[in-house]
Amino acid sequence: MNFKRIFKSGLEKFIREKGSSSAALVVMMAVAGTVLFLYMLQGVSSFSIAQLQDSVDISAYFVEDASEEDISALQDKLLALPEVASAQYITQDQALEQFKADHENDPVILESLEIIGKNPLLASLNIKASDPLQYQNIANFLEQGNYPFIQTVDYKDRAPVIDRLLNLISGFRVAVIAFMIGLALLATLVAFNTTRLAIYNAKEEIEVMKLVGASNEFVRGPFLVQGAIVGVVASFFVFISAIPLFWILSPKLELFLSGFSIFGYFLSHFFWIFLLQTAVGVLLGVLSSMIAIRKYLKV
C-alpha cells in the first residue's frame, strides 16, 4: 500500500515539479546520450580494430614439388590451432592470376612474366591469426616443425608491420577506454550535482515531511521514484531521437568506415542499448537522489 503511495507521490513530483524535472531530464538525457555514444564508439572501435587486424597476415610458401596432400594436411593442422583464425591455400595458378590482376596496368611486369615463360610464383598458405600477438607462435610452429616442403615463411618481413599494428591497436584501445571512462565520470558527476541541487531546493519540503511524522523511507521514496522516472523518460527520448539520427548519418559515416553501417549496428543492438541506457539512467537517478537526500533527512 505504502509503495503504491510512494510511487504515486513520485509520479506527481515528476509531473508537477516541472522546473526540477525538466532540469533533471535534460541532464539525464545527456547521460543517456553519452551511454549511447559510448556504446556506438565501442562498436566502431571494435570494427576498426578488427579491420586493422584483418589487414595483416603471414604466408608459408611451398617448394615447387610440394604435394597437395602435404599442404592440405598442414592446413588442417594449422586450422586446429586456436591461434589460427584462417589458413587459405593459394595454388601457383591462383597466385599468378592474382599477381596479374594486381599488375594489370604495369605492362613491363606482365611482359617480364611472358619472357620467363613459366609461373615463377609459389603455392602458399595465407594465414591469419586470431590475435596479432600470435603470429610469432605460428611462425615458430611452421619453421620448427618438420615440414621440408615449406620453402619460406615471411614472418620476419612482416614482423615490423605487425609490431607497429600491435602498438597502434593497443594505443587506440587505451585511448578509447580512457575517453569512455572520462566521459562516463563526467556524465555521472554532472547528473549527481544536478540531483544534489534539486534536492537542496527541496530541503524545506523534506524538513516539513519529517516534522509531520514521515519516516525516512516515506520522505526518500518519492525522490527515488522521481529519479527513476527521469532515467526512464530520458532514455526513451534519447533512444527515439537516435533512430532518425543514425539513419541520416549512417551513409555518411560509411564513407569513413567502409563496411560498417552505424544504423545497422544500432538496430541489431537496440535492445541492449535501450536496456543499458535505462539501467544507467535509473541507477544514476536513484543513487544520486539517495546520496543527496541523506543529509537532509537528519531533522
Partner: peptide, 25 residues
C-alpha cells in the same frame, strides 16, 4: 533513536508561522 523519531512526531500536530505546506500538493 533517529529511526523512531517519526513515531514521536506523529503524536504531535505542528502549525508554523510560515505555514510550511508542501508546495506541489
Amino acid at each position: 533513536p533517529e529511526s523512531k523519531l517519526h513515531e514521536h512526531r506523529r503524536k504531535i500536530g505542528v502549525v508554523f508561522q510560515d505555514y510550511k505546506l508542501l508546495p506541489f500538493k
